[in-house]
């Protein structure tokens, strides 16, 4: 019973944070990625500050977690263990970044953005899910796929 409640609360905090920080507004994300705007004075550093503040409040959690045997409710910490850089990580990050720059949506703000009832968001999320399903279809069963991160 506690797992779904904690999940809901964590999702709520995340969605509230994305909305307050205006990261649900693609124009604001693109304005951050537009480093050409530094010269013209139109650059918007807000996204960098959002990530900085998020890191500031997430890092203590990860620091405490490293000193604990298990989480408060679960039986173990399920964090990714791989440390190697491979083509999939690099290619995936580049493809994701290209799509992110095209529209200004990454997965969290796109899902939360559905709350604003815009048809553009619905189309983006529909094809984002299709892209995820396409990835699953293209990778053979038993393939080493890292979930969770």
């Amino acid at each position: 019973m506690l797992f779904p409640l904690v999940g809901l609360l964590a999702g709520l905090l995340f969605g509230i944070g994305l909305t307050i920080s205006q990261m649900v507004n693609p124009e604001k994300v693109v304005a951050f990625l537009d480093f050409g705007g530094i010269a013209t004075g139109t650059w918007d550093p807000s996204l960098g500050l959002v990530m900085g503040a998020a890191l500031l409040f997430a890092a203590p959690g990860f620091y405490i977690a490293r000193r604990r045997e298990a989480p408060i409710l679960g039986d173990r910490f399920d964090t990714p263990q791989r440390r190697n850089l491979d083509g999939r990580l690099i290619g995936g990050a580049l493809l994701f970044g290209a799509g992110w720059g095209l529209v200004g949506y990454c997965p969290g703000p796109a899902i939360a953005g559905l709350a604003f009832g815009r048809m553009e968001t619905v189309i983006f999320v529909a094809f984002m899910l299709l892209g995820m399903l396409a990835y699953r279809r293209l990778t053979a069963p038993g393939h080493d796929i890292a979930y969770g991160q």
Binding site: A10, S46, F62, A70, P71
Partner: peptide, 30 residues
Amino acid sequence: MENFTPVSALIGGAFIGLSASLLLLSLGRI
């Protein structure tokens, strides 16, 4: 930088970081 919104960015970012800490410390998930 007339569109820069540092206060809402910091407050919103804090919520996101708290969400990540909550999920990790309670359920052990990313």
